[in-house]
């Protein structure tokens, strides 16, 4: 029997390794491409051994890419903080108070997610032009916050529903105001949910492409990383080395953030599947 168990053990480990490798191929491809010379990149047969160069990264440093990455960081994180903050407060209200037409309101909030965002890109473009919000940080932050809010409200409501009401009642009786009770009692216990919601919101805002492309000017001041990578055209078509280098650097901040909150994330994605 032990041999059989060993066999299945190795088989499962091998399968996991295989799947992970398959998933990591694009990442590998990006990393090696970013380290290759242009001629190696466009070689008809992929070169596995090549001369390493950092010229692609140097080109990036010379371009506006890092200021655009900074835009991504500012817009992504600000909209995430806003969406999670407002979402948590409204989820708390939905969870704890009697609200007239609560179900309808919640459905309405969710329904904003039912339309593919691309459908509204033209109306929003026109609105933003009139409001002079095009190519501004504020405009994109507002948009991403709005998109993420419905998601944040629904997810956070689930988490807050799980926190027993007695905790706040006790705090109220002990001399705290409702808001103090929220800060001191509800928030610490909702931290897992907040982290999970924040990861999802950040990834959505971070990766958003269509609006970022349409609502900013080429080379404008609020361009985020995703449209900037696409616009990395050289004189002879796409400069794939620069694209790969930009993409790799683009992955790093969100990977670090996800790594930092990974424990909460696991609980977040399995939310509802596991009952305490």
């Amino acid at each position: 029997m032990p041999t059989r168990r060993n066999f299945s053990y190795y088989l499962s480990r091998f399968s996991i390794l295989l799947v992970v490798l398959i998933y990591l191929i694009p990442i590998y491809w990006i990393i090696v491409t970013s380290l290759k010379y242009g001629s190696d990149i466009s070689a008809p047969f992929p070169k596995f051994f090549f001369k390493i160069t950092f010229e692609n990264y140097q080109k990036l440093f010379a371009s506006k890419y890092f200021s655009q990455l900074l835009n991504s960081i500012i817009i992504g994180f600000t909209s995430t903080i806003l969406a999670v903050g407002i979402g948590t407060l409204s989820a708390y209200a939905f969870s704890r108070f009697k609200i007239a037409g609560e179900d309808d309101l919640l459905f309405f909030i969710l329904s904003t997610r039912m339309l593919p965002p691309i459908v509204v890109v033209i109306p929003i473009y026109l609105m933003y032009t009139v409001l002079k919000l095009r190519d501004t940080h504020f405009g994109l932050i507002l948009l991403y916050t709005t998109f993420n809010l419905s998601f944040a409200v629904w997810l956070m409501k689930g988490f807050i529903d799980e926190i027993p009401k007695e905790y706040e009642d006790a705090a109220l009786v002990d001399g705290y105001t409702r808001f103090q009770a929220f800060i001191k009692v509800v928030l610490p216990q909702a931290s897992t949910g907040i982290a999970a919601t924040a990861v999802f919101c950040l990834i959505t805002a971070w990766n958003e492409f269509a609006f970022a492309l349409v609502l900013t000017e080429v080379g404008g001041k609020a361009v985020t990383a995703p449209p900037s990578i696409v616009s990395a055209t050289g004189k002879t078509g796409y400069d794939w080395g620069k694209v790969a280098a930009g993409t790799f650097i683009f992955l790093v901040p969100v990977a670090i953030f996800t790594f930092l909150v990974r424990k909460h994330l696991l609980r977040g994605v399995t939310f509802g599947a596991i009952k305490k």
Binding site: P164, E166, Y167, D169, A170, A171, L172, V173, D174, G175, Y176, T177, K184, V185, P188, Q189
Partner: peptide, 29 residues
């Protein structure tokens, strides 16, 4: 409001805040 009545409530369940120590729980009020 509850805060001004100066009563102490002992609940059936969920008596202590899970994120605080016993000392902090007792000091909380």
């Amino acid at each position: 409001d509850p805060a001004s009545r100066d009563v102490a409530f002992v609940f059936q369940s969920h008596i202590l805040y899970p994120h605080l120590t016993a000392f902090e729980n007792m000091a909380f009020p």
